[in-house]
Design a protein around this nucleic acid. Sequence first.
RNA 1: GCCCCCAUAGCCCAAUGGCAGAGGCAGACGACUUAAAAUCGUUCCAGUGUGGGUUCGAGUCCCACUGGGGGCACCA
Length: 828
Amino acid sequence: MNEIRNEPTGPDVFAIQEKWLPVWDELRPFASGNKDDIRPKKYVLDMFPYPSGDLHMGHAEAYALGDVIARYWIQKGYNVMHPIGWDAFGLPAENAAIKRKLDPKAWTYDNIEIHKASMRRYACSFDWDRIIRTCDPIYYRWNQWLFLEFYKKGLAYRKNSMVNWCPSCQTVLANEQVVGGACERCDSVVTKKALTQWFFRVTEYADRLLDDLELLECAWPSKVLSMQRNWIGRSYGAEVDFAVDGRTEPITVYTTRPDTLYGATFMVVAVDSDLAAELVSGSTPEVRMQFQAYLDETKKSNDIERMATDRAKTGVDTGRFAVNPANGELIPIWVSDYVLADYGTGAIMAVPAHDQRDLDFARALGLPVRVVVETGEADSVETGVATVGEGVLVNSGALNGLSKVDAISKMVGILEEEGKGKAAKNFRLRDWLISRQRYWGTPIPIVHCESCGEVPVPQDQLPIELPSAEGLDLAPKGTSPLGGAEEWVNVPCPSCGKPAKRDTDTMDTFVDSSWYFLRYLSPNSETEAFSKEEASKWAPVDQYVGGVTHAILHLLYARFFTKVLQDLGYVDFGEPFTRLLNQGMVLMNGSAMSKSRGNLVKLGDQLDEHGADAIRLTMAFAGPPEDDIDWADVSPAGSGKFLARCWRLANDVDVRVGVDFSKGNLELRKATHSFLRDFGTNIENFKFNVGVAKLMELVNAARKTIDGSVGPTDPAVREATEIVAKALSLFSPFMAEEMWEMLGHKPGVALALLPEADPALLVESTLTAVLQVDGKLRDTVELSVDATDADLQAAADASAAVQRAIEGREITKVIVRAPKLINIVTKQ
RNA sequence: GCCCCCAUAGCCCAAUGGCAGAGGCAGACGACUUAAAAUCGUUCCAGUGUGGGUUCGAGUCCCACUGGGGGCACCA
């Protein structure tokens, strides 16, 4: 007897999960490689994960949202390619290897298997035939091929320079990997080191990378666009040549304010530049000693100290003089650490009156200040605040009386005429440092030969496979562990055949991820990086989904690669990702989850407790996707309740499959079709939370119909429930499939098409019209949808509330928006 | 310091310039139950951060401010 009472009134979500997984393995609904497929294409891409441990809540959000989009387009009749792979090279594998004495390779591949199993259980709609792993030789040989293509074009080059060095990771870092002077990965303070390193000439594409952001306006989050613009940082100005006393060549400086040239009262050269060393070499021993001491101190300080803007200005007078080309004045040349060696020319003209940094320097070291722009602001010498506003030029010869803009163009004209300068632009963006002194990455395909120099490895010798980690000392020591692989390093020179050595550095893993979206097109090809034919069919990516953490690095590099590949003729487009969605982070109690903070929510625990469907639904329903989700604010249990509601709905339907819906209850049919009208728009605009809310509304309406006088046998109940099952499958595919089966269909709700709304069911015959007086609501009235202005006026005349409100007032105006609104305006 | 985004009920969030509430969470009450859970139903709750402006009408558009978040930052 108890058995009867305890009969389950809801679904066993875990049994349902286990039931459908093997069915789907068989059905393979997300395979996209059928050549005969006539559906239009859609390339939906999730940023591929780094295989460290198991999936976490962040992955769960990203893949839930990416899945909504991919599954939606399938149900709209598209052939959707939704691939997955692993960004499998990188430091964590190596660090785990060092710490736990594991092979980085084994560690990585084990983690990939863990990921794969979790993605399957999370019901990700991936095309499992297109898997890539960047640590597979079949993948990274194409990194090497691309490197050589770049090399041929002069886009890959080696130079000695001061580079960012992480003392903890014991490797160089790209500019983009230094955040606030610290290593992005381990937070150690980054230092500078002079090293010979490989670079990609991304600066050659700076203009295009900046200008083409225009094409992405409205298709990428504006935040990402502005971050990229900031990062590239183009400025316009002029290069000005200053003749130097006792030196044949002039010193060229870059300035954005050539209008203030008359106010340049001294010059400053970056202390760590070659130019500074050269200038002082001709000075007195005292100066040389002072310079050396200052230089040593600068080198000792790190970027965090050096970048502190409130630090007092320091410097050394070189004792040398330059000639101001505007007025012929001799001005002293100083060296200082506030001028950067690798921006512009490493030397500046100092205009202390109109530049705060120069003014600080002038005041600290007693240098003259000359006002050349009258801005109406207080005297900068007295206030210590440089006047940077608009104004009229003074003390500036031919420029006197001009505005800033006019003075800039006139000065540039004069300089160009006299051969002392020219218009110029500069970028904050630096070339991309790609070599790393670590093991677990793509070997750089260059051989160093004593007689031939740098020799590119011939294509037919690719891939250069990594030597086995066995026997290698992977511990960071500042030089690549590959140097210890004797047999691997020592090779005959491909050019002359004499003994030579391989380059022992490996590539930055951002190289791997700069083109992976193309590799998915032909993931197993041994003859090309990607099929040009497939690329013209599938690429560019229609929809990219990933975290905003990659707003600069990865997206900029991928855009760069795409433009290079376009120039090389391998692709026919210039932007890789047509549309971008950045999902927010998953937080717990207001802050990022971490073990050390003690607020870590484990995805595995959540799945064990609520099931994949409820977690996925919670991710979609939590709010706008780009906002952060605080796990403390959302309710996976609530999602579970909704899913049970859906299940009971399907369970209660008592209409045979294939019934003619047209005889169904009109009210519910209208609800179903207005859902169909709105749902697609919501999903296409990434308003997943609103889409789920609409779905809940439809479930509520169907429930009401079943429980009310219409009952479970009405055809409209089946229509509504089938639409619920299809729409639900974007969020909670297990339950949707279960419902689909309960409704009498064969497995594969993911492939069932979402119909268009029937327009005939969207027309309403009446609506609630609003009667306002002076903009305030006074009454409402049911009117026909084709009510005229006169009908509204009549309704207002007939309304006691309206008449009361206008009583004794003079009507000045009547605004009518038939059929829904009338506003009677009275004299105030 | 410069640039960008956000602010609606106790909470998460909706709302083509036209009735502030679609949905959910939490709460309260009721039905079912010996009881509880589950379920179903009903219900309480803000005038939209502050101050101006535009408009017949502003959560929505404009300006300023406050608070929160983010990006860049000695880039000449």
